[in-house]
């Protein structure tokens, strides 16, 4: 067992962990953050994407013991219980989700991308947006509505709307 301190969505826990436990499992079970979804457990679908110290990371390819001292953010922290983050609102507006299983991964992958584009004050081509989400598999939407949602969010951010 390894002593590990992890902060997830602002909540800090001192955990005694078996090293093999995946970050995804620890977030789901020890922090009860069930918005972290496991889609493939081999790093090929993006459903488990969370932010580790602000950077999107596959939590199924990360051992929780590697995150000692790290700040983790999951989809639960993005826009709260009402899912009111700008990108979430754009997903709702553009029908960017159907079954919702891949959605937390898409949101956590693309929220920083929206910020990056807004910071550059640039509307990327659709091909760039598609490339940015190429590590995430959605089986329901056909992706077009997710691309539309990302475009909408970038437009709104460039127009000065806040994320919350």
């Amino acid at each position: 067992m390894s002593k590990t301190t992890i902060t997830a969505n602002g909540q800090t826990k001192n955990l005694s962990l078996e090293p093999r436990r995946l970050l995804a499992d620890v977030l789901r079970e020890d922090f009860r953050l069930s918005g972290v979804h496991i889609g493939c457990a081999h790093g090929a679908c993006g459903a488990c994407t969370v932010h580790v110290d602000g950077v999107p990371r596959l939590s199924c390819l990360t051992f929780a013991v590697q995150c000692d001292g790290a700040e983790i953010n999951t989809v639960e922290s993005l826009g709260g219980d009402d899912a009111h983050h700008l990108l979430q609102r754009a997903f709702r507006e553009e029908h960017g989700l159907q079954c919702g299983y891949c959605t937390p991964g898409f949101l956590m992958t693309m929220a920083p991308y929206v910020e990056e584009m807004a910071a550059q004050d640039r509307m990327p081509e659709d091909a760039e947006i598609r490339h940015a989400m190429s590590g995430n598999i959605c089986r329901c939407t056909g992706y077009q509505s997710i691309v539309a949602a990302v475009r909408l969010a970038i437009t709104q951010r460039r127009n000065g709307e806040s994320t919350q």
């Binding site: 790093g43 993006g46 994407t49 950077v55 999107p56 990371r57 596959l58 390819l61 992958t109 490339h131 940015a132 190429s134 590590g135």
Partner: peptide, 9 residues
């Protein structure tokens, strides 16, 4: 190489 999240790590 890979997809963006993989490339970052």
């Amino acid at each position: 190489i890979g997809h963006p999240t993989i490339r970052r790590r």
